[in-house]
Design a protein around this nucleic acid. Sequence first.
DNA 1: GTATTAACCGTCCGATCGGTCAGCTCGCAG
DNA 2: CTGCGAGCTGACCGATCGGACGGTTAATAC
Lengths: 201, 201
Amino acid sequence: MTTTPQARTVRRGRPGHDLESVLQIAVRLFNERGYDGTSMEDLARKLGITKSAIYHHVPSKQELLRLAVDRALDRLFGVVARAEAIDGRAIERLEYLVRGSVAVLVEQLPFVTLLLRVHGNTKVERAALARRREFDRIVANLVTEAENDGDIRPDVDPAVTARLLFGMVNSLIEWYRPGRGDSDIAEAVARIAFDGIRVRA
Amino acid sequence: MTTTPQARTVRRGRPGHDLESVLQIAVRLFNERGYDGTSMEDLARKLGITKSAIYHHVPSKQELLRLAVDRALDRLFGVVARAEAIDGRAIERLEYLVRGSVAVLVEQLPFVTLLLRVHGNTKVERAALARRREFDRIVANLVTEAENDGDIRPDVDPAVTARLLFGMVNSLIEWYRPGRGDSDIAEAVARIAFDGIRVRA
DNA sequence: GTATTAACCGTCCGATCGGTCAGCTCGCAG
DNA sequence: CTGCGAGCTGACCGATCGGACGGTTAATAC
């Protein structure tokens, strides 16, 4: 128990939830039961307030979703930007992107989980899907480039390789839980993705 | 256009949908919009009949879900049974399980997709999750066994290896679409999973 | 032509959905 | 002790939810 060196300014008004704490709990609940499977009444109960109080913090259910997926997307594109700035071979940028993405998944697990489960039912969800496709496109280009460099196996279609690679990375949301062994998960992902599960002959 | 050699027995009664055709379209719709995001009215519209007509074929929305996920689980456990019957090293049984699972994913894509997205909100969904966990347990044991044989890299926790392996396999539901190039997808998955995306030194 | 079988329709229901609105409560600042 | 900002309540709304029910329609079988 370390006392955090009071960085927060003094809170005015009646104490209780603010937008951030509502968002945190909302996202956690959305992940447990699904966005459509979670009612605002469910959320209110979990928050310990009434449904109408939620609308003091956020104008709509959709907006909660938007805030969450945008946060996840912003972090992921932050990694993309840092990866693209690296001088060197494409496979090095790819490895940075993989490790960085794993780090984002781990640090922002609930937000990324929600992002990876949107369906495209609404404008908000379709916008999120569009940005996800852009991310996937960048990954595919990087894999293609690395294959042209002769650093990635040429016997599998680079588009398929890219999908499988990030299929593995993204699967983290289904089973990785922080603070339960699984130390340096990025290292484990990188090893298995780049060199496979089999021992070398 | 080949005329299929009439294997079907003559249908009695008024023509239209039967349980199977309702299930097919329901599962497709559930995958597009999510189970909770799809109303029975939505489904009725897609079927071209009224909502009440659906209840002639199936007693509840939950039952549609149950039929779908059970079909997927039955196929997957069929592969498990055939894998466990193989004499040989654990890694051979594991490779059979991977390739067989990919085949099931491809052949029963909508059903498996629905299975891999259940949340556990209802009794039906929790039962499906329980069978999924049993499947995962079998995979983890197989990976552990293969690692003890010295056939799988010992520098990653076998539980993590198992998760990443099937994380990759299961990611197929997110992007694989039949009849669009991507020939012998099982071969591609096996190569990348067992030997990695990098070229051998 | 008359059963039998299977598919379907229209109407209705109680519950729940996301969301609105006017007013109330709590705590710090001056 | 008053003003005010932030958080919250309770009552309510139209729409939609999954589902029930009694009657109808279209095909084959005899």
